[in-house]
């Protein structure tokens, strides 16, 4: 796969991105018109599946590595397993938050700015798209494409952070949803806060990898750090794929 045609891989990324966009819009309209929880959950699962398979390449866990235990590919395989185990573990944090959300709020949701929600969701999805381009470029030894893709991802990641923490939070507080106002506020700030914390660590990770990439530390054959940053970044996106409907779409607003 790493040696397959670069153009084909990039095109595949575009197709997946189109699917994700359509599904996100579909999700949004289902929420307004039908409010079907089942459909929303199904769509979120499909989106997560698409990102997990085509952007995060979960199937790579199954590769039989050639070479001895000390070879770079074998070590990368071990690292990959470690990273995925970490994501599994981290996923439990977010699952726990989702459990708390549905236990406390049930099928109600906080009154939030829908436009803003859709915008930050779009920003994060687009960042995943460029992350995929950056990783694909590095796989084919294209450092220029890598730097371009990484830079856009980084900017979009920061934009997401600003959107949530800098705009959404003050707006919510202005609307009377504060951390101490009640279970709704507590859940909203804890879920977005924990996610934002992970985005922040992802941004730092991306910045480190971008800097080292610009200094020429990675090559088409050896770029585990790039792959790790990409997989982590997509994971943060997948979390938001579930948190967005959980906070913005599922349930009705109680005023």
């Amino acid at each position: 796969m790493a040696h397959s045609d670069k153009k084909a891989v990039l095109n595949q990324g575009v197709i997946i991105f189109v699917f994700l966009t359509v599904l996100t819009l579909l999700e949004f309209f289902i929420a307004i018109t039908m409010a079907s929880v089942v459909l929303l959950v199904v769509i979120a699962l499909v989106k997560a599946g698409l990102v997990g398979y085509y952007y995060m390449h979960i199937y790579r866990l199954n590769i039989d590595d050639e070479g001895g235990h000390d070879s770079y590919p074998y070590k990368t395989g071990t690292n990959r397993l470690g990273l995925w185990l970490f994501l599994l573990s981290d996923g439990f944090v977010f699952a726990g938050l989702a459990v708390a959300r549905f236990n406390l709020l049930g099928l109600t949701r906080p009154h939030l700015n829908q436009t803003l929600g859709l915008i930050v969701t779009a920003v994060l999805l687009i960042s995943s798209f460029f992350m995929n381009r950056a990783e694909t470029s590095m796989e084919h030894g294209d450092r220029k494409g890598f730097v371009l893709g990484m830079s856009i991802t980084l900017v979009l990641g920061i934009a997401f952070l600003l959107g949530v923490v800098g705009v959404e939070w003050p707006q919510a507080i202005h609307e009377g949803i504060t951390p101490s106002s009640g279970a709704e506020g507590a859940i909203f700030f804890m879920m977005t806060g924990m996610h934002a914390f992970h985005v922040l660590t992802g941004v730092i990770f991306l910045a480190v990898v971008l800097r080292n990439g610009m200094r020429g530390l990675y090559s088409g054959e050896k770029h585990w750090a790039v792959e790790a940053a990409a997989v982590y970044w997509h994971f943060v996106d997948v979390v938001w794929i579930f948190f967005y409907p959980a906070l913005y779409l599922i349930g009705t607003v109680v005023t």
């Binding site: 708390a100 236990n103 406390l104 951390p179 101490s180 106002s181 009640g182 279970a183 709704e184 506020g185 507590a186 859940i187 700030f189 804890m190």
Partner: peptide
Amino acid sequence: MGFFDPTKGGN
């Protein structure tokens, strides 16, 4: 934050 505080809707 009222996660476990019933007076704030917690459990």
